[in-house]
Amino acid sequence: MEKENNKDKMFEKYTWTIKDFSKLGSHKLFSQKFSIDDHLWRILIFPKGLNNMNHLSIYLDGGASVGNLAEGWKKFINFKLALINQINHKMTKTRETEHQFDAKNIDWGFSQFIPLDELHNPKNGFIVNDTCIIEVEILVSKLKQENEVDKPDNKIKDILTKHIDKPLPKETFTTFGETLDLKGLGKIEQHFFPLLEQVCSKHPSLLNSQKKRTLEYVEWAFTALGRVLHFLKTKMVKDMDEDACNHLQILWEELETFKFDLTWLEPHVQSALNMKNYKERSVEVKKLKENVSSLEMETKMLEEKMIETKVNLEIARRELTKISEGFVEYNLDDGLAYGG
C-alpha cells in the first residue's frame, strides 16, 4: 500500500491480487480492508457480472465499518479503479470518478467495467496464471470536503422538486445485497449536475417526462442522460475511434429507453458517431492533398526546366547559324583524289 500525505490531501493506492480467479464460486467478493483517513475501505467486485450484465463490476466500498460510523458522517472521495494488464501495462483499464460517501451511500463504482469475454481472453493480459490484479487510488481533499459536502442540495434536485407535481416518494431498493435508504439523487455523479441543470433549463420536457416516476427510475434516467452529455462534453474529434463510437452508441441506446424527448440531442450524437468516418475520410483527403502538392511542385520544376531548355535551344540555334556561314559540307566518305 502506498501513501502520500500533506495538509490538504491524502492519497493511497491499494493493490488487490486475486489468485485462482477462475475458481471463484461467489458472485460477490470483497478485498481485505484498508484504512485511509481513519476509515476502512474495501474493493468490491462481481466476478461473474452484476444482474447478468456479462461485465466485470468493480466498486469502492466504504461500508467496512458501517456499524461504527458517527452520525452525519460523510466523506467526498475522488478515486480511480484499475484492472491491471499484466502483459502490457499501457493497456491497463482505468476508470475515474468521484462520490460523496455517507451512511446511506456507502459504495460507488462501475457496473460495466469490462466485458467478461475480454477479461477472460488470455491474449489480453488481464488474467495471467489465473491471477487478476485490481488497484484503487484514492484522493481525499479535506478542503474540498469541508467546502462542498455541507452545501445545500444541488440545483438539479431543486429543479426536479419544482417541476414534478408531487414529491417523489421515498424509495428503498437493494444494491449489492444491502438495503439502502435513498434520499435525493445521491447516485448521480456530481460532475453530471452542471450539464443536467443546463439542459433541463433549456428543455423542460426532460423533467415533465419523468412525472409520476419513482425516484429510482428518475435517478437512472438522469444518470443515463448525464453520461451522454459528459461524453459529448469531454471528447474531441481525434478521440472518436471505433471503440469510442461503440461506447457512445451503447450510452445512446440506453438513454433512449427512458423515453425522453431527445430530438434536440440526437443531431449532436449522430454527428459524433459520424466522426469515425470523417476521420477516415480526413486521412484520405490529407494524403491526396499531399500527393497533389507534390505533383504541383514537380510540375513547377519541370516547367522551369523546360524554360531553361528552350533558352539553351535558342542559343544553340544561333551558334549553329553563325558557324555555318560559308561552311561547305563534304561527304566524309569521299576520296581526296583530284581529277586529271
Rank of each mutant, 00 (worst) to 15 (best):
W16P: 05
T179M: 10
D37C: 13
C245N: 15
F79K: 08
N124M: 12
K233W: 05
I58N: 07
W264A: 10
H39L: 00
Y14T: 11
N312G: 02
G186V: 11
Y330I: 04
F192K: 05
T309Q: 13
Q86T: 07
D241P: 13
D241I: 05
P167A: 01
L336K: 15
D261F: 06
S65D: 10
Q100W: 08
E254K: 08
I250C: 15
L196I: 11
Q198K: 05
K289P: 14
Q32P: 07
K33T: 12
D107V: 07
L83G: 04
E325M: 00
L29R: 13
K144V: 01
N105G: 02
K202D: 15
P267W: 10
D181W: 01
G72F: 02
R213I: 09
N274Y: 08
Q86R: 06
K212D: 10
E12Y: 07
I45F: 01
K80R: 12
I36P: 06
E135G: 08
T172H: 03
G25V: 02
Y14F: 12
M297L: 14
K259A: 09
W220Y: 15
D38G: 08
G25H: 03
E266V: 09
H203E: 12
K238D: 13
P267N: 08
M297H: 11
M236V: 02
S22A: 07
H39V: 00
N331C: 04
T179D: 06
N51L: 07
K286L: 04
N274M: 09
D243I: 04
M301E: 15
H39N: 03
R318T: 01
D20H: 14
K183S: 11
I133Y: 10
K123F: 00
V283Y: 12
S31D: 05
K74A: 05
L207T: 13
N68E: 06
K202M: 08
L215V: 12
L180T: 12
F34V: 03
K238M: 04
E2I: 01
F46K: 02
F126H: 10
C132K: 01
K233E: 03
S282V: 00
F327Q: 05
L143P: 10
S324D: 09
G335A: 05
Q32L: 01
K305T: 12
E319P: 02
L196E: 15
L232R: 15
D333H: 12
K183D: 12
D61P: 11
I127L: 09
W41D: 08
I133C: 09
D239A: 00
H27D: 03
E219Q: 15
A272I: 03
S111D: 14
L262Y: 08
